[in-house]
Simulated scan of single mutants.
Amino acid sequence: MLRIHGIPRSRAFRCIWAAEEAGLPYEVVPIGFAPGFKLERAVAINPNNKIPALEDGDLVLFESLAINLHIAKKAGAPLMPAGDDASRVLQWTLWTATEAEPHVMRWSYNAYLKPEAERVAAEAAAGKEALDARLAVLEKELAQRPFLVGEGFTIADLNLASVLYGSWMNGYDYGPFPKVKAWLDACLTRPAALRARRQREG
Protein backbone atom coordinates (compact mmCIF):
# COMPACT_ATOMS: atom_id res chain seq x y z
CA MET A 1 0.00 0.00 0.00
CA LEU A 2 1.38 3.38 -1.03
CA ARG A 3 1.07 6.06 1.65
CA ILE A 4 1.01 9.55 0.14
CA HIS A 5 1.53 12.30 2.70
CA GLY A 6 -0.19 15.55 1.74
CA ILE A 7 -3.60 16.67 0.54
CA PRO A 8 -5.11 16.62 -2.95
CA ARG A 9 -4.99 20.44 -3.11
CA SER A 10 -1.19 20.36 -3.19
CA ARG A 11 1.55 18.75 -5.25
CA ALA A 12 0.35 15.47 -3.77
CA PHE A 13 -2.34 15.64 -6.47
CA ARG A 14 0.33 14.56 -8.94
CA CYS A 15 1.10 11.43 -6.93
CA ILE A 16 -2.56 10.59 -6.39
CA TRP A 17 -3.11 10.80 -10.14
CA ALA A 18 -0.07 8.60 -10.75
CA ALA A 19 -1.33 5.98 -8.31
CA GLU A 20 -4.73 6.06 -10.03
CA GLU A 21 -3.13 5.61 -13.46
CA ALA A 22 -0.97 2.78 -12.12
CA GLY A 23 -3.92 1.02 -10.52
CA LEU A 24 -1.99 0.66 -7.26
CA PRO A 25 -3.67 0.77 -3.84
CA TYR A 26 -2.86 3.92 -1.88
CA GLU A 27 -3.96 5.98 1.05
CA VAL A 28 -3.58 9.70 1.57
CA VAL A 29 -2.15 10.77 4.94
CA PRO A 30 -3.60 14.28 5.18
CA ILE A 31 -1.24 17.13 5.91
CA GLY A 32 -2.57 20.51 4.84
CA PHE A 33 -1.59 24.14 5.00
CA ALA A 34 -1.92 26.91 7.55
CA PRO A 35 -2.10 30.53 6.32
CA GLY A 36 0.92 31.67 4.35
CA PHE A 37 1.50 28.32 2.62
CA LYS A 38 2.98 26.85 5.81
CA LEU A 39 2.29 23.23 6.71
CA GLU A 40 -0.11 22.64 9.57
CA ARG A 41 2.35 20.15 11.07
CA ALA A 42 5.81 18.79 10.37
CA VAL A 43 6.43 16.05 7.83
CA ALA A 44 8.82 13.88 9.80
CA ILE A 45 9.66 11.56 6.92
CA ASN A 46 10.76 14.38 4.59
CA PRO A 47 13.97 16.18 5.63
CA ASN A 48 12.79 19.18 3.59
CA ASN A 49 9.56 19.31 5.63
CA LYS A 50 7.44 19.53 2.48
CA ILE A 51 4.62 17.59 0.88
CA PRO A 52 4.21 15.23 -0.77
CA ALA A 53 6.23 12.40 0.68
CA LEU A 54 5.74 8.73 -0.05
CA GLU A 55 6.06 5.57 1.97
CA ASP A 56 6.17 2.34 -0.01
CA GLY A 57 7.07 -0.38 2.45
CA ASP A 58 10.55 0.48 3.72
CA LEU A 59 11.14 3.00 0.95
CA VAL A 60 10.60 6.69 1.73
CA LEU A 61 10.71 9.24 -1.08
CA PHE A 62 10.23 12.97 -1.45
CA GLU A 63 9.94 15.18 -4.56
CA SER A 64 6.63 14.67 -6.34
CA LEU A 65 8.04 13.94 -9.79
CA ALA A 66 10.52 11.39 -8.41
CA ILE A 67 7.67 9.76 -6.50
CA ASN A 68 5.74 9.54 -9.77
CA LEU A 69 8.65 7.93 -11.59
CA HIS A 70 8.79 5.32 -8.82
CA ILE A 71 5.06 4.66 -9.05
CA ALA A 72 5.28 4.34 -12.83
CA LYS A 73 8.23 1.97 -12.57
CA LYS A 74 6.17 -0.27 -10.31
CA ALA A 75 3.35 -0.26 -12.86
CA GLY A 76 5.59 -0.78 -15.89
CA ALA A 77 4.50 -0.20 -19.47
CA PRO A 78 2.70 1.68 -20.85
CA LEU A 79 2.93 4.17 -17.95
CA MET A 80 6.70 3.66 -17.77
CA PRO A 81 8.05 2.37 -21.09
CA ALA A 82 11.32 0.51 -21.50
CA GLY A 83 14.48 1.16 -23.47
CA ASP A 84 15.10 4.52 -25.10
CA ASP A 85 11.58 5.67 -24.29
CA ALA A 86 12.37 5.33 -20.58
CA SER A 87 15.20 7.81 -21.13
CA ARG A 88 12.80 10.13 -22.94
CA VAL A 89 10.47 9.95 -19.93
CA LEU A 90 13.35 11.10 -17.72
CA GLN A 91 14.20 13.87 -20.19
CA TRP A 92 10.67 15.28 -20.18
CA THR A 93 10.32 14.92 -16.42
CA LEU A 94 13.48 16.92 -15.85
CA TRP A 95 12.32 19.45 -18.46
CA THR A 96 9.12 19.77 -16.46
CA ALA A 97 11.02 20.50 -13.27
CA THR A 98 13.60 22.89 -14.72
CA GLU A 99 11.92 24.56 -17.70
CA ALA A 100 8.20 24.62 -16.92
CA GLU A 101 7.46 24.56 -13.21
CA PRO A 102 9.45 27.61 -12.03
CA HIS A 103 7.67 29.84 -14.54
CA VAL A 104 4.19 28.41 -14.11
CA MET A 105 4.53 28.90 -10.34
CA ARG A 106 5.76 32.47 -10.77
CA TRP A 107 2.65 33.18 -12.79
CA SER A 108 0.35 31.21 -10.49
CA TYR A 109 1.41 32.87 -7.24
CA ASN A 110 0.78 36.29 -8.73
CA ALA A 111 -2.32 35.41 -10.76
CA TYR A 112 -4.46 33.45 -8.29
CA LEU A 113 -2.65 31.72 -5.41
CA LYS A 114 -1.64 34.68 -3.26
CA PRO A 115 -4.21 36.99 -1.70
CA GLU A 116 -5.08 39.66 -4.23
CA ALA A 117 -3.34 42.42 -2.27
CA GLU A 118 -0.06 40.50 -2.36
CA ARG A 119 -0.02 39.75 -6.10
CA VAL A 120 2.46 41.58 -8.31
CA ALA A 121 1.23 42.02 -11.87
CA ALA A 122 4.75 42.44 -13.24
CA GLU A 123 5.75 39.10 -11.71
CA ALA A 124 2.74 37.37 -13.25
CA ALA A 125 3.61 38.90 -16.63
CA ALA A 126 7.24 37.82 -16.35
CA GLY A 127 6.20 34.29 -15.45
CA LYS A 128 3.82 34.17 -18.40
CA GLU A 129 6.43 35.46 -20.83
CA ALA A 130 8.93 32.81 -19.71
CA LEU A 131 6.36 30.03 -19.71
CA ASP A 132 5.08 30.99 -23.14
CA ALA A 133 8.61 30.50 -24.50
CA ARG A 134 8.60 26.95 -23.11
CA LEU A 135 5.08 26.29 -24.38
CA ALA A 136 6.27 27.26 -27.86
CA VAL A 137 8.85 24.48 -27.63
CA LEU A 138 6.18 22.07 -26.45
CA GLU A 139 3.83 23.13 -29.26
CA LYS A 140 6.44 22.14 -31.86
CA GLU A 141 7.04 18.80 -30.19
CA LEU A 142 3.34 17.97 -29.98
CA ALA A 143 2.91 18.82 -33.66
CA GLN A 144 5.00 15.70 -34.36
CA ARG A 145 3.18 13.20 -32.10
CA PRO A 146 0.14 13.10 -29.81
CA PHE A 147 2.08 12.56 -26.56
CA LEU A 148 5.51 13.46 -25.26
CA VAL A 149 7.08 10.05 -25.87
CA GLY A 150 5.10 8.89 -28.87
CA GLU A 151 1.66 7.53 -29.57
CA GLY A 152 0.62 6.71 -26.00
CA PHE A 153 0.24 8.41 -22.63
CA THR A 154 3.13 7.89 -20.19
CA ILE A 155 4.21 9.23 -16.83
CA ALA A 156 6.06 11.98 -18.72
CA ASP A 157 2.70 13.36 -19.88
CA LEU A 158 1.24 13.04 -16.40
CA ASN A 159 4.17 14.84 -14.79
CA LEU A 160 4.03 17.81 -17.15
CA ALA A 161 0.23 18.00 -17.33
CA SER A 162 -0.02 17.91 -13.54
CA VAL A 163 2.41 20.83 -13.27
CA LEU A 164 0.35 22.81 -15.81
CA TYR A 165 -2.98 21.78 -14.25
CA GLY A 166 -3.35 24.86 -12.02
CA SER A 167 -2.81 27.25 -14.91
CA TRP A 168 -5.21 25.23 -17.09
CA MET A 169 -7.86 25.53 -14.38
CA ASN A 170 -7.27 29.20 -13.60
CA GLY A 171 -7.45 31.13 -16.82
CA TYR A 172 -4.02 30.87 -18.40
CA ASP A 173 -4.22 31.80 -22.08
CA TYR A 174 -3.40 28.62 -23.99
CA GLY A 175 -4.95 30.07 -27.18
CA PRO A 176 -1.59 30.57 -28.94
CA PHE A 177 -0.74 26.91 -28.29
CA PRO A 178 -3.59 24.78 -29.68
CA LYS A 179 -1.57 21.54 -29.71
CA VAL A 180 -0.63 22.04 -26.07
CA LYS A 181 -4.23 22.86 -25.18
CA ALA A 182 -5.57 19.75 -26.93
CA TRP A 183 -2.91 17.59 -25.26
CA LEU A 184 -3.68 19.07 -21.84
CA ASP A 185 -7.40 18.52 -22.34
CA ALA A 186 -6.75 14.89 -23.28
CA CYS A 187 -4.46 14.27 -20.31
CA LEU A 188 -6.60 15.97 -17.69
CA THR A 189 -9.85 14.28 -18.74
CA ARG A 190 -8.53 10.73 -18.62
CA PRO A 191 -10.56 8.53 -16.22
CA ALA A 192 -7.71 8.32 -13.69
CA ALA A 193 -7.15 12.08 -13.91
CA LEU A 194 -10.84 12.70 -13.28
CA ARG A 195 -10.76 10.45 -10.21
CA ALA A 196 -7.79 12.41 -8.84
CA ARG A 197 -9.38 15.73 -9.77
CA ARG A 198 -12.56 14.86 -7.90
CA GLN A 199 -10.47 14.56 -4.76
CA ARG A 200 -8.79 17.90 -5.43
CA GLU A 201 -11.75 19.87 -6.71
CA GLY A 202 -14.52 18.32 -4.61
Rank of each mutant, 00 (worst) to 15 (best):
V43W: 11
A97E: 14
T154P: 05
T189S: 01
A75S: 11
K179F: 09
D157I: 04
T96F: 01
R145P: 06
E151K: 12
Y172C: 03
A77W: 03
A12F: 04
Y172N: 08
K74I: 06
L164Y: 08
A117Q: 13
I155H: 03
L138E: 03
N68A: 08
M105E: 08
Y174I: 04
E129N: 06
G83C: 11
A117G: 14
C15R: 00
L61Y: 09
P178I: 13
E129R: 15
L131D: 10
A124N: 10
S162W: 00
N159C: 15
L194R: 06
L59T: 13
E101Y: 00
S162Y: 00
G23M: 01
F177P: 06
R200M: 14
W183I: 02
N159D: 13
H5L: 07
N159I: 09
G76D: 06
V60K: 10
E55F: 03
P176K: 07
E123R: 05
G57F: 07
L24V: 06
Q199N: 06
V89I: 14
E123C: 02
L135M: 13
D85F: 07
A82N: 10
F177M: 09
L184I: 06
S167R: 07
A156N: 12
A86L: 09
H70G: 02
F153H: 12
A182K: 09
A97H: 03
T96N: 13
L194N: 00
W95S: 07
R200K: 13
A82G: 10
A22V: 00
A126M: 09
C187P: 01
D85S: 12
A133F: 11
L54N: 02
E20C: 08
C187L: 11
L54S: 09
Q199G: 12
Y109A: 05
L164G: 05
A34V: 11
M80F: 09
P146A: 04
A82S: 12
A44R: 11
G76P: 05
A182N: 07
T189L: 00
A34T: 09
D56T: 02
C15T: 10
T154S: 15
I7G: 06
V137P: 04
Q144M: 13
Q144L: 14
A111E: 05
L79D: 06
P35K: 07
K114E: 09
L61W: 04
W92M: 12
I31G: 07
A196R: 00
D132F: 05
R88K: 15
A44N: 11
V89T: 07
D157R: 04
V104M: 14
A122C: 10
P52A: 09
E123F: 06
N159V: 15
L148W: 03
A124K: 08
R134P: 10
E123I: 09
A196V: 01
R41A: 13
A161V: 04
V29G: 10
A19R: 01
L160H: 02
G152M: 05
E118Q: 15
R14V: 04
K114C: 08
N159K: 01
N68W: 00
T154F: 07
K73F: 07
R195P: 00
P146Q: 12
D185N: 11
L135N: 00
S167E: 02
W107G: 06
G76E: 07
L94M: 14
L113F: 13
E129M: 06
E21T: 01
P146G: 01
V29F: 03
